[in-house]
């Protein structure tokens, strides 16, 4: 009873705090501070049409590297936690992999039609990340959804773990190397002006941003894919 009372009290205090914030909130009419700089100088400095992409990939590139690292660590941690269970599981050696019921023919046919299209869509999203809404993370999530679909439709087949791991570590390594290239050839770590900026708004523009988007997309896609696979096992 007392516990419930404290709970209600905490929620009520929280609600009062939020009420105050929401009551005093007024919409801004103009960008201020660093955002203003990004808005007015971002296009000419980095040459990317999508301002969010240039903030994520270059201005705050170190954060994104950290974020990718967090995702990697969480995937590694999840696989560690889920693996230990399997080893301790039955105590017997070489438990045969679980058999799942086959999915219906409709799902299987849909898979063979949609799987390449979903993959292609994910690739499209991260290749055009610097021009349209999208980017590496979103494209990677779409690719992971294709992998999830594959796992749902063909539950008894598994994707090669080795392949996913190779793609992931290779793209992570190349990401850091491209960042270091910026230190040597240009203004600093993860600077995108290593290669020419190209025509503003065209596919081959914005220096390293599309390349890094592709790498992040591959990395996130394979990471989420292996995470899903771990949860399935």
């Amino acid at each position: 009873m007392l516990k419930r009372l404290f709970m209600m009290l905490a929620l009520a205090l929280m609600a009062m705090m939020f009420f105050d914030i929401a009551g005093n909130y007024s919409e801004r009419t103009e960008l201020t501070g660093i955002s203003k700089h990004y808005a007015t100088e971002g296009a000419s400095e980095l040459g990317a049409a999508n301002l969010v992409a240039s903030v994520v990939i270059t201005y705050r590139g170190l954060d994104t590297l950290g974020e990718v690292t967090v995702l990697f660590i969480s995937a590694a941690g999840a696989s560690l936690l889920l693996r230990r269970r399997r080893e301790r599981g039955e105590g017997s050696e070489e438990r045969p992999s679980r058999q799942y019921a086959e999915s219906s023919e409709i799902v299987q046919t849909t898979l063979s039609i949609l799987f390449p299209i979903i993959l292609l869509f994910g690739v499209y999203i991260f290749i055009n990340g610097h021009l349209t809404p999208g980017g590496g993370f979103q494209g990677g999530a779409v690719i992971a959804s294709a992998i999830l679909f594959f796992m749902l439709a063909r539950p008894n087949e598994s994707l090669s773990h080795m392949m996913l791991m190779r793609i992931e570590s290779l793209s992570g390594f190349t990401y850091v190397m491209l960042g270091l290239l910026g230190v040597i050839l240009s203004g600093g770590f993860l600077d995108n002006r290593v290669i020419p900026l190209g025509d503003f708004g065209s596919l081959f523009s914005a220096g390293l941003i599309p390349l890094i988007n592709i790498l992040i997309g591959l990395k996130v896609g394979s990471e989420l894919g292996s995470l899903l696979q771990k949860f399935k096992e």
């Binding site: 103009e30 960008l31 660093i34 955002s35 808005a39 296009a43 301002l51 903030v55």
Partner: peptide, 9 residues
Amino acid sequence: ASVIIVDPV
């Protein structure tokens, strides 16, 4: 840009 786009940050 500074008056017609939302804050990118």
